[in-house]
Write a protein that binds this DNA or RNA. Structure first.
Lengths: 123, 123
DNA sequence: TTTCAACCTGGAGTGCGCTCCAGGTCAAGC
DNA sequence: GCTTGACCTGGAGCGCACTCCAGGTTGAAA
């Protein structure tokens, strides 16, 4: 049972983002106090961990919504969820490969500058 | 000497993006035919390769502009350029680490689903 | 000579993912 | 009881990086 500030701190999402995620239906069933304030459970927090993983790997929000919705529909969507994650993972793999390649280019370019700047103080 | 379509094909940027890059001053000094059409040189193309590397690694356009501007200023900005690239490379490294970690999480989650779905057809 | 696809310009529009705001409510500590 | 900071809502606004459009021009092939 955590207040919004604590959920934000633990998940790394801002308060506004948490409210936004609830508004668009990504996060649903968040409890409230009698006064109308949000109360986050450990369950909510583990959803946030999942969202963080998906977001960090570049999944669009619309697809996260679809994943969350499938989960809410129950056990019979397990295969669909797995499929969705596998397709995403494949995209992430490509992204990772590209990033590594371009990182190598970048490092190469930096080495080139070092050859100019660094003076290579005579062998 | 390449027409816009060819520059787009080779660089992977759209025609609109090439025009946009020129408009904001990222790409400068692109030649023209007497009729006003763009003519891209090998030099322009190698700039585009650099921009693709920087963009693919998440550098904001404003910073690419700064880099391009430094280059145009001449040899005395070499150290600044190197610095800029090094700082960027450091960020990319972090990004790469995060992406790898989250990718591992994702794969773990998929394995979890496989444990449910896949039935593990008895050892 | 005509055609027509590729190109030009300035400027408006788009999609994403938040982020900010005004104006109000709640509740813990003094 | 009062203060004060955390929280609430609906809705507007923002920053980025393009992308699209209208209306016009160019130039190579048939």
């Amino acid at each position: 049972m955590y207040p919004p500030s604590e959920a934000a701190r633990r998940s790394g999402f801002s308060l506004d983002t948490l409210r936004y995620y609830e508004k668009i239906g990504l996060l649903s069933g968040v409890g409230r106090t009698s006064g109308g304030r949000r109360v986050f459970t450990d369950d909510d927090l583990s959803w946030l961990v999942v969202f963080r993983c998906l977001r960090d790997t570049g999944m669009p929000i619309a697809e996260m919504c679809r994943y969350a919705e499938l989960s809410r529909e129950g056990e019979h969507t397990v295969a669909a969820r797995q499929e969705l994650l596998e397709q995403h993972a494949a995209r992430v793999e490509e992204q990772l490969t590209l990033l590594q390649r371009q990182y190598a280019h970048l490092r190469e370019k930096i080495r080139f500058y070092q050859g100019i700047t660094g003076a290579t103080p005579v062998p």
